[in-house]
Every structure is written in structure tokens, then in C-alpha cells.
């Protein structure tokens, strides 16, 4: 091994070390705000229960479950789902719509994909998708940070003008904050 190759090795090593160590010399940050992942867990669990309901429905349709069993399980699972929905609301009012926001984001993205829209709209869609991947604390923060405001501007018909939570077409009050919704 020559000195030259050692020197070259060093020349390679230095930038690599700099690259790997750089984040250590930026201001300290935390990975996630709290250690509370209950909401995420509840959402995932809700998703599972919904899948389960769909699954037994399908099993019933394809003749694997008889009607009594189906009714009984369906009732039990719906009970679970309802209790989960409530608990999600308790922990994080307005977070139930996380899912709905996600829907909106996807819808927006689909629109972007379907028809040429301005770059601004695409950017909005992207920011919404980002929101979809957060837990309650970050959702609120992101909302405050203005991501959701853009959403409001984009699709005012479907989001609460006060808190930014999505609303269903027939709603008269926002489910997240209770504000009376403006009539279109």
C-alpha cells in the first residue's frame, strides 16, 4: 500500500465523515414531540376493524358465514369501531378526519394527475399528503403552519372555514370545532 493510495483514501474518507457527522452539528431537535403514539395506534386499529367488517361482509356474501353469525360478528365489530371512533375523538378532537384529510389529499392529487393544474395546486396536494402522515400534535402544528389554509383556499366547499377540518357536503356544523358552516 503506497502513501499515495493512503492519501487518496484520506481524501475520500474526509467528505464521507463530514457528510455522516454533519447532522450532529446542527441545532438539537427531537425526532417526535411526545412519546404518545396512542392516536396512531387507535387509527391503525380502527382501520383494522373496518377491514374486518368488510372481510366478514365478503365472507357472508361468498357463503362462508351464515347470516346469524354474520349479524352477530358485524354487531360486535361495529361496536368496537364506534368505541374506537369515540376514543379517537376524545384524544384528539378533529383527528378523526385525519383520514378524511387523506382522502382529500388523494382526491386532489388525482385531480392533479387527471388535468393539468397550476404548480401551486400540485404543491398544495403535496403538502396535504404530508399532513396525512402525521400524528395529532403535528397535524395541529402543520395546520397552524398554514398548510391547511392553502387547502381551504383550494377547496373551500369541503373544509371548515374556522379550523380547516374537512366537512361532508350535507353538514351544517363542523364536526371538529362545532362552528356553524357558511352556506354556499
Amino acid at each position: 500500500m503506497t502513501w499515495l493510495s493512503l492519501a487518496i483514501g484520506l481524501i475520500i474518507a474526509l467528505p464521507v465523515i463530514a457528510y455522516v457527522a454533519r447532522p450532529l452539528f446542527t441545532p438539537a431537535r427531537l425526532l417526535y414531540a411526545t412519546d404518545d403514539s396512542r392516536l396512531g395506534d387507535l387509527l391503525a386499529r380502527k382501520d383494522t376493524v373496518l377491514s374486518n367488517i368488510k372481510e366478514i361482509e365478503f365472507d357472508h356474501q361468498t357463503g362462508k358465514l351464515n347470516t346469524e353469525d354474520y349479524a352477530q360478528y358485524n354487531q360486535r365489530l361495529r361496536g368496537q369501531a364506534l368505541s374506537l371512533l369515540k376514543r379517537i375523538d376524545q384524544i384528539a378532537p378533529g383527528a378523526g378526519d385525519l383520514d378524511t384529510q387523506l382522502e382529500a389529499a388523494i382526491a386532489a392529487r388525482r385531480k392533479v394527475a387527471a388535468a393539468p393544474v397550476s404548480d401551486a395546486a400540485a404543491a398544495t396536494a403535496a403538502s396535504v399528503t404530508e399532513i396525512a402522515g402525521t400524528d395529532d400534535a403535528t397535524t395541529k402544528q402543520a395546520t397552524e403552519a398554514g398548510g391547511a389554509k392553502e387547502v381551504v383556499m383550494q377547496r373551500s366547499a369541503s373544509f371548515c372555514h374556522h379550523c380547516g377540518a374537512p366537512v361532508e357536503p350535507g353538514d351544517r356544523f363542523c364536526r371538529a370545532c362545532g362552528t356553524r358552516l357558511r352556506e354556499e
Binding site: R29, L30, Y32, G40, L102, E130, G133, T134, D135, Q141
Partner: peptide, 12 residues
């Protein structure tokens, strides 16, 4: 995009 609830970097 399945909601990924475990957390995301926070601008603290």
C-alpha cells in the same frame, strides 16, 4: 398512503 401515525420530524 396509509396514515403513518408514529410521528414525523418536528420543527421544534
Amino acid at each position: 398512503t396509509v396514515p403513518a401515525p408514529a410521528g414525523v420530524p418536528v420543527r421544534a
